[in-house]
Simulated assay, not measured.
Amino acid sequence: MNGLDARMRAAQDAGDGPALIALYHEAALTAASDVARGFYLTHAFVHALEAGDARAVDLRAELHAMGRI
């Protein structure tokens, strides 16, 4: 498990929604493929929506630009 995975698991275990948004977005930025990038962005977007976080707007725009929404 790499450091990002460990931080994601810790944030998930702690129920830290804001951290999960940031971590999934970080994972998207470093993803090896568009499929993986879309997966991570989708998770970041869902967590942002659940939290009512303003980052949802930008995440949606990124997904839209990828043709995912």
Rank of each mutant, 00 (worst) to 15 (best):
H43R: 14
L49P: 02
R60P: 08
A6R: 15
A31L: 06
A51T: 02
N2L: 13
M66P: 06
A11I: 01
A56W: 00
V35G: 07
D58Q: 04
D34T: 13
A51Q: 05
D53L: 02
G3H: 12
A51F: 05
E26G: 04
V46N: 03
H64M: 11
H47S: 03
Q12R: 14
Y24W: 08
Y24Q: 12
A65H: 06
G38V: 03
R68F: 13
E62P: 04
A61F: 05
G67K: 01
G15R: 00
A51G: 05
L59T: 07
R60C: 07
Y40V: 10
E50D: 12
A44N: 05
G15T: 07
G67I: 12
A22H: 12
R60Q: 11
H64G: 01
M66I: 05
A51P: 00
R37P: 11
Q12Y: 09
E50M: 09
F45V: 04
H47P: 01
R68N: 12
A27M: 11
H43N: 13
L20C: 00
D5L: 15
G15L: 04
L63K: 07
L63E: 02
M8F: 15
L49F: 09
G52V: 03
D53C: 00
L20S: 10
N2W: 09
R9H: 14
A31I: 11
L49Y: 11
M8P: 14
A48G: 01
I21C: 07
G3L: 14
A19Q: 11
H25G: 11
R9P: 05
G17T: 11
